[in-house]
Amino acid sequence: MRANTWLTLVVILAVSVVVAVCAGHQWADPLDVARAFFGDDSLRGRLLVEWRLPRVLAAAASGALLGIGGAVYQGVFRNPLAEPYLLGSAGGAALGATVALLVPLGLPQSLVLALLAFAGAWGATVVVMGIARLAGSVDAAGLLLAGVAIAAVLGALRSFLMLALSDDTVNLQVVLSWVLGGIQTPSWPGLGLLATATVAAIAIALPLARGLDALGLGETMATGFGHDVRRLTDVAVLVGSGIVAVAVVFSGLVAFVGLAAPHIARWLAGPLHRRLLPASALVGATIVTVADAIARSALPPAEIPLGLVTAVAGGPFFILLLARQLRA
């Protein structure tokens, strides 16, 4: 492999970013974008560079995080249907974030949001793993079942909180739009933070590649090849949920990207994780960049929640995968 594959992935992402910067309820010409970059000081140019570009880059970074997170999850659970949203970690992050948005805790909301989303994602994942181990089934099926159950409980809790805590002073619209997923236009420091988190996620996930590859041979083979399967599973699940938590903090609940990106990446780059993880990041970035562009420009002047766009596109994809797996 296949320098071509990487080049293609990077070029497609770059093209998507340019198109996404052009897209909006007012479409811009790529030439306008270029001019805006090189010092066009008109209002329109400044809007493109200071408003639209950061949002597009944030979408790409969130997508990259979801892609890597999904690839790590699928690797550790050895199940192509594994997804952060099926395993409780995204649900946990969403519950934490709902509390942060609805309960006044006297701290800056952005900080509380990040912390509670993290806590929710880690907590939910640890509970899921605990339940699976208690039930004596640490295998993929046990974890997935526990994850589905916990995700349902967390979703119900979140809905209850939204009903119970909303009053005239709390804007339910804010929570709802966040739950439905959406990229907020970040400040430049915020974008820097997100970019750092994305690079860190790749740097932390890549050393897991060898272990995830071995896990893909089965637990017995992985043990025979010198891996501590239990420790490897623990570490990979925690890394995966940490990555998902970051994505959830920045983009709310965006479903199916963590599922679809690794699949597409596997078709393009093969199933070896040293290639799959970076490829999933690139594919995930492309998907969310495009989905966010559609969300912004499909029904002007309104904006469709990003989570709805990915769900509408991702649902059929999931069904297709399920059908393929059932046939196999």
Partner: peptide
């Protein structure tokens, strides 16, 4: 092992 099936379709 007696039986071996990789989870991913590797070369």
């Amino acid at each position: 092992p007696q039986q071996f099936t990789p989870h991913w379709d590797l070369t």
